[in-house]
Design a protein around this nucleic acid. Structure first.
Lengths: 106, 106
DNA sequence: TACAATGCTACGAATTACGTAGTATCTGAA
DNA sequence: TTCAGATACTACGTAATTCGTAGCATTGTA
């Protein structure tokens, strides 16, 4: 599976979970109604890739973090999604657990 | 800060942590040595945005998950990085902790 | 059967990134 | 000091990619 196709698969998964059509997703995300269906379809099939602003708007519409779309491993995608939905306490526990792991220096 | 600039800031952060120059990062990631510096520089400043394959190669070279570059919040970037560096046991604990949070339906 | 909704695609135009060919600045060695 | 190499950065024209237009095919349903 190529990178664009994986990206599209994650978009489609989030869209279906939200119960939206390709067209309505695009429109809600601010894409011109006359081309919304066309563009979302191409993103999902991995034919084209949207710019960051469009991707961010799609993520907001679908209630997932932008980074979710770019996860290369399924467990990473799951982590990103679940963390974003977790309550404050659970997030704090995760942060504490991972505090032992090294952060990015500099 | 615009989305491309944030992306570039994360790339730069990871590059500096790895102790590489813009040129050497690009070369190691497989970019033509004659244009590596130019391209990495434009990515870091948010002038241009690389395609997914290039971004993935940069992530591999720097030892960060691809999704790290696309995190919109700093705590999300930190989560993604630390999780990727955590040992198997710590990852399992995180997964268990977040199992209470809802996953993405469908 | 009709018709609306949905998913999908070829084509030319518009947008974006790329490669070329540099400049400016800094640091270390002679 | 001066020179050379390394580093970060940028204007310009070309090449590559996405966009908008204008559709087609299939499914469900009134």
């Amino acid at each position: 599976m190529d990178a664009n196709q994986l990206w599209g698969r994650r978009l489609k998964q989030a869209r279906l979970a939200a119960g939206l059509s390709q067209k309505s997703l695009g429109i809600t995300a601010g894409i011109d109604p006359f081309v919304a269906s066309t563009r979302i379809n191409r993103y999902e099939l991995g034919v084209h890739k949207p710019d960051l602003l469009t991707a961010s708007n799609l993520a907001k519409t679908l209630g997932v973090p932008l980074a979710f779309f770019y996860a290369e491993e399924d467990d990473m995608a799951d982590l990103i999604y679940r963390y974003s939905k977790a309550d404050t306490e659970a997030k704090a526990q995760v942060v504490q657990l991972l505090a032992a792991s090294p952060g990015l220096a500099e």
